[in-house]
Design a protein around this nucleic acid. Structure first.
Lengths: 229, 229
DNA sequence: CAATTTCATATCGTATACAATATTTGCTTA
DNA sequence: TAAGCAAATATTGTATACGATATGAAATTG
């Protein structure tokens, strides 16, 4: 008889989503090893599905796989860190422009809700959650622009951005830039494509300047702390 | 006893590379079904590795996987087709600029060799091979620019471009645009970053205008014709 | 005869078993 | 005691087995 409550049937996507979310929220640090049977135990599936999930995450740059050695949460180099944001600068301003032209009232509601949640998270001191929501805000704009391929690329870039921020972010306590998001929303609501494009570009360049050049080593995480069974 | 000569031991990457190459050269048509044990037989490996390879290609947009139904060479919609080239327009001009600033004499040799091979292929009437080489030319420029992340994205975009061209290309016999490549090489050699950027943008926009709006259906391919054992 | 259902087959999805490789531990020796 | 080696252990790599699902053919029914 299949188990009903203890270990729900998890799909590859479930595993990817939960691990990705944990990385985005900085509950798992870069460099953390992801052993296959350990992850399998946590999610109640065999190594087969875990391997698929890890390979999928590796494709997004969130995980590094070393042959015969295993998977680790990726540690982007400083060079890669800069490239991530430089690439975002190439893609996202145009996306913001397209979003400004396409955004409906319903879309604006969704964006405002995102910001509200982000603020709440910050008020509760959950910086990791706020960071994840901030990433989702950017992704939501690509969705509004209805640019599937760019949305997919942006998904990868935002994942990597989370790692970059974990490794190279200067201001630990940063209230970050929710103000920039507010301004963006205003431009989108006004259908001001030029302004949306400019704001997005400035916003990203601003983030880029706030990366610290010296890389602090980070301690790997124990998976069982993150997913208590 | 394991076979020694007939079927060499293939890795996941081998399978991905060979299938990808066949798609890039239009030896496999969009829509072609890729059954797991059929591919496994061809490459002399079990379904385990084939599944990894197919999922990897799916991540690059080269293959579509339908649950419980299998993998097919992707058939980009017209909308996706436009998005592919629009995204290339966002990324590649800046890459050409960076390449112009970074290119060494040795890099120029490699590019010229690419063009020469492309011409030879066209002379022999091997349009598919020429197309693949053309894609590699673009990828080589990203490599020269030393932009790893963009190179990775470009790899995906060029893969999809091959499918788009198979489906939507207007001029069947097209000598295409090797002239554009020649001009680009000149700009790179002259370290003229501005000109390289402009040429690349024009080149890509030109390609975009040559896509046909009506989608011709294409006949799927028999795998055993492509990989005779 | 057309539409539908049923059953047989083909194919994919997941778990498990075993092989290959890497890592650690404990022993030996200088 | 430190360095090097060898066996034991841990972990990943690949193939295979079995279950689940979809597909297509044959049988059934209106």
């Amino acid at each position: 008889m299949p188990n009903i409550v203890s270990t729900p049937v998890n799909t590859v996507e479930d595993i990817v989503n939960q691990l990705t979310e944990a990385v985005h929220e900085h509950r798992i640090q870069p460099g953390t090893r992801l052993r296959e049977d350990e992850v399998g135990d946590i999610f109640g599936v065999s190594r087969t599905l875990v391997r698929q999930a890890l390979r999928s995450m590796a494709h997004d740059g969130l995980v590094t796989i070393e042959r015969n050695r295993g998977a680790f949460v990726a540690r982007p180099t400083l060079r890669e860190a800069r490239e991530v944001f430089q690439t975002r600068v190439l893609l996202e301003p145009q996306t913001a422009r397209a979003a400004a032209e396409a955004a409906t009232a319903r879309d604006m509601k969704v964006l405002e809700r995102h910001i509200a949640l982000e603020h709440e998270a910050l008020d509760r001191g959950e910086a990791g959650l706020a960071l994840k929501l901030s990433g989702e805000f950017h992704l939501e704009i690509a969705r509004i622009a209805d640019q599937k391929i760019i949305e997919d690329f942006l998904h990868q870039l935002i994942s990597r951005s989370s790692l970059v921020i974990a490794l190279y972010w200067r201001r630990r306590t940063a209230l970050c830039e929710s103000n920039a998001h507010h301004e963006l929303i205003e431009a989108l609501r006004a259908q001001d494509a030029d302004r949306a494009e400019d704001l997005m570009k400035d916003h990203l360049l601003d983030l880029l300047t706030q990366l610290d050049l010296s890389d602090r080593p980070t301690a790997p995480t124990s998976l069982h702390d993150v997913f208590p069974s």
